[in-house]
């Protein structure tokens, strides 16, 4: 019965075992590096933000967008409308995540 198993009784199969061990090791290494690589990507992500200030006229429907400046706040009066000279105020300030891949941070 055992004779049918392709294990030779006089051939040398040591090399087969060595290959088997090596293969297991290689698979292990590849697997672990893949695993840790994906984990690292989860850990290191920080996105930059662009902040936009929206100006609106109180009298007409004039609307303007510009970059946020320090000192801006919602409902602050900022100059006058370019269309009707009415008072202009900040109606909202919001952040837009920067496009492109998340920038790595740290080490």
């Amino acid at each position: 019965m055992l004779n049918q198993i392709p294990i030779s009784s006089n051939g040398d199969y040591t090399y087969l075992l060595t290959w088997y061990l090596l293969l297991v090791l290689i698979v292990l290494i590849i697997f672990s590096t893949l695993l840790s690589a994906t984990r690292r990507r989860v850990l290191v992500t920080l996105r930059g933000m662009r902040t936009i200030t929206v100006l609106q006229c109180e009298k007409c429907d004039y609307k303007e967008e510009r970059e946020f400046q320090v000192g801006d706040y919602v409902l602050k009066r900022v100059g006058e409308c370019a269309k009707c000279k009415g008072p202009l105020y900040i109606s909202m300030i919001y952040g837009v995540p920067e496009k492109g891949p998340p920038r790595p941070y740290g080490y």
């Binding site: 019965m1 055992l2 051939g11 088997y20 061990l21």
Partner: peptide, 18 residues
């Protein structure tokens, strides 16, 4: 009776032990 006679099973044993 289950073991055939005359063979050298060293490699099989090494294989199993590994």
């Amino acid at each position: 009776q289950f073991i055939p006679t005359g063979g050298d099973y060293t490699y099989l044993i090494v294989y199993l032990i590994t």
